[in-house]
Each structure stands twice: as structure tokens, then as C-alpha cells.
């Protein structure tokens, strides 16, 4: 097994900063924005993104967490998963621009589950998707609006995102 680092700490920071700019541009500012990270690493990425946005726009951006465990379509194929808390910021999501944030976009099934979960919580005006890494191999008609890095990979390869908050360092590696 070989491991290759494709993004380092500075790359991740740079990618998030770029995504923040793109969000502001697409949204024409930070008003009505709500960032919802998908646990676990998506939540940390959402918080970092929120901090960058707040700095750029000089106003706090609501950040929350959206757990999709209960909405997955592969529950019965795997050992039982522990769910994570869902935290919707005060003000809710109705009529807002919700940006879903996740670490890796792969089959698209997690995002499908997230869209279902979101619809049980309210009715956003627009839903966007930001991911740190898009590795391809989509199984559903889903695409990201904001991508930190496109990383074409073989399905036999595994991609690991490590973040300071959970893993003690920032790094994206690809292992085969």
C-alpha cells in the first residue's frame, strides 16, 4: 500500500479561501447564507469556511451540522452507524441559501441523503454544495457547486481527509 499526499495544510486553507470567494460571488454577498456541514469532517470544514466568510464579509455567517445517517440508503448493508447531532442555527433554513459542506464527493449518495434530510427540516430558497475534494465516480445526478480540488481516482484507491480538529493535522492523502 502506498500513500501519496495530495493536499497539505496550506493547500486546504487556500482551497477554502477560494471557495469562500466563489460563494460570495455566486450569492452576491453573505446575506441569507447558512452553512451546514455533514458530520464529521464536513462540520469542521463548514466552521472554517464560516470563519473565512465572516472575515471577508465582516458579518457572522450561521454555521450548523446536518446529520444524514437516518437518511442513508445503505443502512441495512452495513453495521449500525451511530448518528450525530443535527444543529440548525437560529433563524432556521426557510428561505435561506443553504450551502452543504462535505469533505469528499464520491457516489453522491450522502448528498442525496442530505437533500432528503434538509427537506424534512424546512424549505431553503437555494441549496448549494461545497466539497473539499471531488473524486468522481458519481452514481447519482449530483454535482458540486464549489470544489476545493478535483482528484480523479480509481475506485480501488482510497482518499483520506485528515483535519486538525479530528486528526491532529491537515492533510489529504490518496492510498492504493
Amino acid at each position: 500500500m502506498t500513500a501519496r499526499t495530495v493536499l497539505q495544510n496550506a493547500d486546504i486553507t487556500r482551497a477554502l479561501t477560494r471557495i469562500a470567494h466563489e460563494i460570495l460571488e455566486a450569492n452576491r454577498g453573505a446575506s441569507d447564507l447558512v452553512l451546514l456541514g455533514i458530520p464529521t469532517r464536513g462540520v469542521h470544514l463548514a466552521r472554517r469556511l464560516g470563519a473565512v466568510l465572516a472575515r471577508l464579509d465582516d458579518a457572522p455567517v450561521p454555521v450548523g451540522a446536518l446529520d444524514v445517517t437516518m437518511y442513508r440508503d445503505d443502512l441495512s448493508r452495513n453495521p449500525t452507524r451511530a448518528p450525530h447531532p443535527t444543529e440548525i442555527p437560529d433563524g432556521g433554513i426557510d428561505g435561506r441559501t443553504v450551502v452543504l459542506v462535505d469533505d469528499v464527493l464520491y457516489s453522491g449518495r450522502t448528498i442525496r441523503a442530505a437533500l432528503d434530510a434538509l427537506s424534512d427540516l424546512g424549505r431553503p430558497r437555494v441549496v448549494r454544495l461545497a466539497v473539499l475534494v471531488d473524486r468522481g465516480h458519481r452514481e447519482l445526478p449530483i454535482r458540486a457547486d464549489f470544489v476545493g480540488k478535483n482528484l480523479p481516482s480509481a475506485s480501488s484507491e482510497r482518499i483520506f481527509v485528515r483535519l486538525d480538529e479530528t486528526d491532529g493535522s491537515d492533510e489529504v492523502t490518496i492510498e492504493s
Partner: peptide, 20 residues
Amino acid sequence: LDVAEDMADVATREVKKLPT
């Protein structure tokens, strides 16, 4: 008990149902 906390949150939502 922790999973039940997540389940209790569902009861506070508009749609009190999960597709699980």
C-alpha cells in the same frame, strides 16, 4: 441514550419522521 437525544430532536421538528 445518546442516539435517543438525536431522536428527541426529531420530535421538535416540523416533520416528525425519519425514513430510516
